[in-house]
């Protein structure tokens, strides 16, 4: 009756396990060379960027004159590095994680053992969120160590950092929030692209190409406005996801000047609420597309 020496009760759990599904997804992420190549590339870019931040302008003078000004500039710089690096990482890893199940046909093996479609999708989201959180924790440790090293080298102690006003720590948490939101949007976008296309090439291609395309679209809109003399093109840029994500740190820290990376909407006076609404709508659309298509479509792979 059995091919097993172990008791059947040990081998036949009542239902598939969600934590088990998350572990399985983490195993799939962790055992890919691509994952570690991306982490290594991210680490290398981070190192170069930290050197560039320290070397650009006259940071030592700024640091000695106003540690807070230096700190905010440093924070803004590392946030840009993180959002780009983590974005590329999560878009590629996320879209591959989902689309490979379809490409390899393993989706049918997984679902045929009782794991629900939405349970699997939730496990993939969770595993990617864990990977993103680990990336953020690692990056924060490196950025903090780098900051303390700079302070020690230039001032002989870390007191300029530890004595920063409370507002500086509020800005820190706002930047962490922006980084988190950026990661969530990337996870949702990468996953949705993979679910829609059900192939690695389509999923990764759309996921990686999306943000460059909608950042570049800002230039196209500016040109169209000049050509047609219609503001509708410029106004449309306030609804572009990439530019809005780029602008979010500035919208959240309106009391001081924050440089935005790449393109921002070509409309003045956008506030944080508008940014949250646009990001929320895009996130909902990505999530709804992934959930609806995963739930409804037959698995023919």
């Amino acid at each position: 009756m059995s091919t097993a020496a172990l008791p059947v009760a040990v081998l036949r759990p009542a239902r598939p396990s969600f934590p088990g599904a998350v572990r399985s997804e983490l195993l799939k992420i962790g055992r890919q060379w691509l994952t570690w190549w991306l982490v290594a590339g991210f680490a290398a870019i981070t190192a170069i960027a930290l050197v560039a931040i320290v070397a650009s302008g006259a940071p030592r003078d700024t640091f000695n004159a106003s540690p807070r000004t230096f700190y905010l500039a440093y924070l803004s710089g590392v946030l840009q590095v993180f959002t780009i690096g983590s974005g590329v990482f999560l878009l590629i890893v996320g879209s591959r994680l989902v689309s490979m199940e379809y490409g390899n046909g393993t989706i049918r093996m997984v679902l045929a053992r009782g794991t629900s479609r939405l349970g699997l999708l939730a496990a993939q989201y969770t595993a990617l969120a864990i990977a993103g959180a680990l990336l953020l924790a690692g990056f924060a440790a490196v950025a903090t160590a780098s900051l303390l090293a700079i302070s020690t080298a230039w001032h002989g102690s870390i007191s300029p950092i530890t004595s920063l006003p409370a507002a500086a720590w509020t800005d820190t948490w706002l930047n962490v929030l922006v980084a988190g939101v950026s990661m969530v949007v990337c996870i949702l976008l990468g996953t949705a692209a993979a679910v829609v296309g059900r192939s690695v090439a389509f999923g990764v291609g759309v996921a990686v190409g999306y943000f460059p395309a909608d950042n570049f679209a800002v230039i196209v809109m500016a040109l169209l406005t000049r050509i047609t003399h219609q503001d509708v093109w410029v106004n449309a840029t306030q609804y572009f996801l990439g530019p809005i994500l780029n602008y979010l740190p500035a919208a959240l820290q309106a009391d001081h000047r924050v440089r935005a990376a790449f393109f921002t909407p070509l409309v003045q006076g956008i506030d944080a609420t508008h940014c949250w609404v646009v990001i929320g709508v895009y996130s909902f659309v990505f999530l709804a597309a992934a959930v609806a298509l995963t739930w409804r479509r037959d698995v023919l792979h």
Binding site: V10, L11, P13, S17, G20, S24, V110, G114
Partner: peptide
């Protein structure tokens, strides 16, 4: 696949 099934001992 074992993780998905809720865990299967290594011996299996």
């Amino acid at each position: 696949f074992a993780h998905m099934l809720g865990g299967v001992p290594d011996a299996r």
